[in-house]
């Protein structure tokens, strides 16, 4: 039978996290997911889960994940924004769960915008 996840595991995560968070530097990459009714209906929550799983898998701790409400581009939901320090805010639209690993690998980690999914750019 597979091991059951327990609160004890959370204690272990905390022990490991403590020293690492102290080493965090200022320049964090931000990922923002639209979590309005339109976003949720289009699958934003599943995008959020995929983002968190990908960040966990890659051990990326200097990325902040946030949510926001409807910004009036409902037809392009789910929307996912990536902001790298000092760079324009890039909005990706109609994001699918399978796009998430590529956006994180290319843009978040390597700084290369995934042009074919871009629906907005704010300087």
């Amino acid at each position: 039978m597979p091991k059951i996840t327990s609160l004890e595991d959370l204690r272990k995560i905390k022990e490991q996290a403590r020293d690492l968070t102290a080493a965090r530097s200022g320049g964090k990459v931000k990922i923002i997911i639209g979590m309005g009714t339109c976003g949720i209906a289009a699958g934003a929550r599943e995008i959020m889960t995929a983002v968190l799983e990908e960040l966990d898998k890659r051990g990326l701790r200097d990325v902040v994940v946030e949510t926001t409400g409807c910004i009036g581009m409902c037809q392009k939901e789910p929307l996912l924004d990536v902001i790298r320090p000092g760079e324009p805010r890039i909005t990706y639209g109609n994001v699918r769960v399978e796009d998430v690993p590529m956006i994180i690998a290319e843009h978040v980690v390597n700084g290369r915008v995934v042009e074919e999914k871009v629906v907005g750019r704010t300087e």
């Binding site: 959370l10 204690r11 995560i13 905390k14 996290a17 968070t21 889960t49 968190l52 799983e53 701790r61």
Partner: peptide, 27 residues
């Protein structure tokens, strides 16, 4: 309850905490 263990609100947003939480609740 989570903060009793984590003792730090900043840890709530760590991806590994989120992944743990989702698994824990699902189970």
């Amino acid at each position: 309850q989570l903060l009793e263990i984590l003792e730090d609100r900043n840890l709530l947003v760590l991806p590994e905490v989120a992944v743990w939480l989702r698994k824990y609740l699902s189970e």
